[in-house]
């Protein structure tokens, strides 16, 4: 659990940390689309150097990014493997029944590998430099047109922000209950699978119970402070769009143009 870097915030002072979350989210979406434009060496080189540049801007060490890729490496290699084995065309290096390793297969595998890693790096840059609550605000804003379709975007955003707020508490509590049961002689991660499953009961039941109590408390608190569902609420948290955010989106547009030209 501690190893997963994707989706974690690293406090910092970089230019990216101070960007509007909406700009970062939009840039992220654009990036995911234009990654598929990288279909030759030139485009791939352009995209890789761009990603490298953005990672430098974030001020977070490269080790952190590499750690972010590590848990996903098997998934990536598996996809690459399938590409290499089942894609045909060009010189054939190996042929056995339905399995062929061809020139095009290998090339494609390399592309897939790079696309994957670039997407992970780029999205990691966003989550590392944006507080979860800012991401929620950004998503809320970008989704707010959906309110016209009667999607309760406001309530979803509130729900998300409250969940984010309580993650540290939940982690704390899990640690506490685990310690308490350890002190009563439970050994985690020992013995057969069945035995290990059994050790989870004394953790999950207390956590479930305390979460219920917490939810009840919270519902009371929210009600007393005037919250009703379906209410039109104003928003205290402000998002401010700066020139640098516009610049970022212009850069993304130029990048797209460059990729199209080089293709």
């Amino acid at each position: 659990m501690n190893k997963l870097i994707l989706g974690r915030y690293f406090p910092g002072e970089s230019v990216l940390h101070y960007m509007d979350p909406r700009a970062k989210l939009l840039a992220g979406f654009i990036f995911i689309f234009i990654v598929f434009l990288a279909s030759n060496w030139q485009t791939l080189a352009l995209l890789t150097s761009f990603t490298f540049f953005v990672m430098c801007l974030s001020g977070v060490s490269f080790k952190v990014y590499l750690r972010g890729v590590r848990p996903l490496i098997w998934l990536i290699l598996f996809t690459v493997f399938l590409q290499v084995l089942f894609r045909s065309g060009g010189t054939v290096y190996f042929d056995w029944g339905p399995i062929t390793i061809s020139h095009n297969g290998i090339i494609n595998g390399v592309y897939i590998f790079f696309r994957f890693v670039l997407i992970i790096f780029f999205t990691t840059v966003i989550t590392l430099t944006t507080k979860p609550i800012e991401l929620t605000d950004g998503i809320y804003f970008l989704l707010s047109p959906l309110e016209k379709l009667k999607v309760p975007v406001d309530e979803i955003a509130l729900m998300l922000s409250i969940s984010l707020r309580f993650i540290p508490n939940l982690l704390d509590e899990t640690q506490k209950v685990m310690d308490a049961q350890r002190a009563r002689g439970t050994e985690f991660g020992e013995g057969s699978l069945l035995k290990q499953m059994k050790t989870l009961v004394p953790i999950f039941l207390p956590l479930y119970e305390s979460s219920l109590n917490r939810a009840e408390d919270m519902a009371n608190v929210m009600e007393v402070r005037g919250y009703q569902s379906g209410l039109t609420r104003s928003n205290f948290r402000r998002l401010t769009w700066h020139t640098k955010d516009t610049l970022a989106l212009v850069t993304m547009a130029l990048l797209t143009l460059g990729l199209l030209l080089l293709q």
Binding site: V177, A183, R184, P202, P206, E209
Partner: peptide
């Protein structure tokens, strides 16, 4: 841990068993 009994703050948050008897017996078992 067998020799050192540890009562955490708000220890009631560690209760989980179906009955009081089972919960008290959990550690010694």
């Amino acid at each position: 841990r067998k020799k050192v009994g540890m009562v955490f703050q708000f220890p009631e948050s560690q209760l989980f068993a179906e009955t009081v008897e089972k919960d008290i017996s959990f550690g010694p078992l």
